[in-house]
Design a protein around this nucleic acid. Structure first.
Length: 271
DNA sequence: CGGTTTTGACCTGCGC
DNA sequence: GCGCAGGTCAAAACCG
């Protein structure tokens, strides 16, 4: 996976296609708008490549609550701002805790698949302050995906589950994913860039966009030409929206953010 | 038979 | 340095 510093989707890589004709009147204004759009597209695309759509860059909203729900620390929101501005930042492991109500039929074995991702259990431990064992899960894409998850029942309320996530997925969720690996087992290997975009009847994979100059792949110039078309941008938007709609974590964070907003606006009525 | 889960052993960090 | 607790490893068991 690319670290983002050499991401070919940044605006500098896309602009030469458009900026090359100095003759047309009003082209500067058009160029300025396209440049702006490119910058936005590049930041959201970068977020997808990182496996976690950047909510701030997408929404352009002052949704501090969304970021807070994802990563409680203040530094994380700074990182999001920096990423949205196209600044390369050191990847920091994000840790967040999610509470959920456990179904009666839930067993520790199936706790790992409820969030739409595939997990593999690698350990279990009884901790000091909780009689219920804590289960340790790794993303099924490991080692290419570094995400880990700890799941433990609440010490006091057995029906409450506490899941702690570390890191960010660098791939789509399991049901949406295009398996390039072993489909029979549902266990794909090392396909972190699984978003496929098809603006003109032909599939462009994000991994194509990150591999320069290899003979059988689409060349960078062709890809760049496709990327700036409205069809591509609409499709990319669709992809992102669908991805977010199906992301339980995102919907959870969004719900929290909306609830927080409501509480902020109507504190007197609800208290 | 291959992939996944279980579980005891081992490693590591931290406080005393 | 020692003990404790959390986290990880890896061999064996299990399962489809």
């Amino acid at each position: 996976m690319d670290d983002g510093s050499s991401c070919p989707t940044d605006s500098a890589g896309l602009l030469p296609l458009i900026a090359g004709s100095p003759t047309a009147e009003g082209l500067e204004e058009k160029l300025r708008r396209v440049r702006e759009e490119n910058r936005r597209l590049a930041s959201t695309l970068g977020a997808i490549l990182a496996g976690r759509p950047d909510l701030r860059a997408l929404a352009r909203a002052p949704a501090s609550a969304v970021t807070a729900a994802w990563a409680p620390s203040g530094s994380a929101s700074n990182a999001a701002r920096e990423e949205a501005a196209g600044v390369t930042v050191e990847p920091r492991p994000k840790v967040r805790t999610v509470c959920a109500r456990a179904e009666p039929a839930d067993t520790d074995a199936n706790l790992g698949v409820k969030d739409g991702y595939q997990w593999r259990k690698y350990g279990q431990k009884v901790t000091r302050d909780n009689p219920h064992p804590r289960s340790y899960f790794r993303c099924a894409f490991a080692p290419s995906c570094p995400v880990k998850k700890k799941v433990q029942r609440d010490a006091e309320d057995r029906s409450k589950l506490v899941a702690t996530y570390e890191g960010e997925h660098n791939h789509a969720k399991s049901p949406e994913r295009e398996f390039v690996g072993n489909e029979s087992t549902g266990y794909a290997r090392s396909q972190p860039c699984s978003v496929s975009i098809n603006p003109s009847g032909r599939t462009i994979r994000l991994e194509d966009m990150t591999n320069h100059g290899s003979g059988s792949r689409l060349d960078l110039e062709t890809i760049q030409r496709e990327v700036v078309t409205p069809e591509f941008q609409n499709l990319l938007l669709d992809k992102m929206v669908n991805s977010l709609k199906n992301d339980a974590d995102f919907m959870h964070a969004l719900t929290n953010a909306v609830a927080e907003r409501i509480l902020e606006n109507f504190p007197a009525r609800l208290s």
